[in-house]
């Protein structure tokens, strides 16, 4: 087993995961805000923030889809060792990770059912840039309006139109995370 596989996890899992979760939760509760996620050093091409999200939310109960370059031996081994998450295809995943291009098309992911809209995938979108400029956001979690650099605003409008079904997104870049739940209205 590669040393890289064994390393890069949380040094103090209860506290590190608690901090990371608060960052992710604040991001999801306040779309268009950026939060720092520290403590994880996953193998390339994953960002530190994406690694922290995986360590915080994934385990043997969450099928994970690795899209594009994220589906490499180093990431597979790291995910298996640190989370135990079973790998799955897009249609059967609870979480998916990759670049926007690699994750497309969005139509393949579970969006929940009318009885259980929570049974939908959360996509971790690795981004080259992430800042609070770009598409205008309104909706729950946003007092007046917010802005976020989104890869394709129309895709998120289509996603929101299906509410209460839909996908939820985490955007990761370096050690930062932002989120866009299905409720956010994108202009």
């Amino acid at each position: 087993m590669q040393a890289q596989t064994l390393e890069g996890g949380f040094a103090n899992p209860p506290a590190d995961a608690a901090h990371a979760f608060r960052g992710v939760m604040e991001a999801m509760a306040r779309p268009g805000t950026l939060h720092q996620l520290a403590g994880a050093t996953p193998p390339a091409p994953l960002s530190a923030a994406a690694g922290a999200v995986l360590l915080t939310l994934c385990d043997t109960e969450t099928p994970l889809y690795l899209a594009g370059d994220a589906d490499c031996a180093a990431v597979r081994a790291w995910v298996a060792f640190h989370t135990g998450a079973p790998l799955a295809d897009a249609a059967n995943c609870a979480f998916a990770i990759g670049t926007w291009q690699a994750l497309a098309p969005l139509s393949g992911f579970p969006v929940g059912t009318p009885d259980y809209p929570d049974r939908s995938a959360t996509l971790i979108v690795e981004c080259d840039t992430l800042d609070t400029k770009g598409a205008t956001l309104t909706g729950p979690g946003i007092r007046d309006s917010a802005a976020l650099s989104l890869p394709d605003p129309q895709a998120f409008r289509d996603n929101a139109a299906r509410f209460p079904l839909g996908l939820d997104f985490l955007f990761t870049c370096g050690d930062r995370v932002a989120a866009l739940p299905r409720t956010t209205r994108v202009r």
């Binding site: 915080t56 979690g141 739940p181 299905r182």
Partner: peptide, 22 residues
């Protein structure tokens, strides 16, 4: 930690679908 992860996932879905009981 596993129980917390399970609860944390439920919280995130709850925030994404306000008012829906996860």
């Amino acid at each position: 930690e596993q129980t917390k992860r399970m609860i944390r996932r439920a919280i995130l879905k709850g925030l994404a679908i306000p008012g829906y009981q996860v």
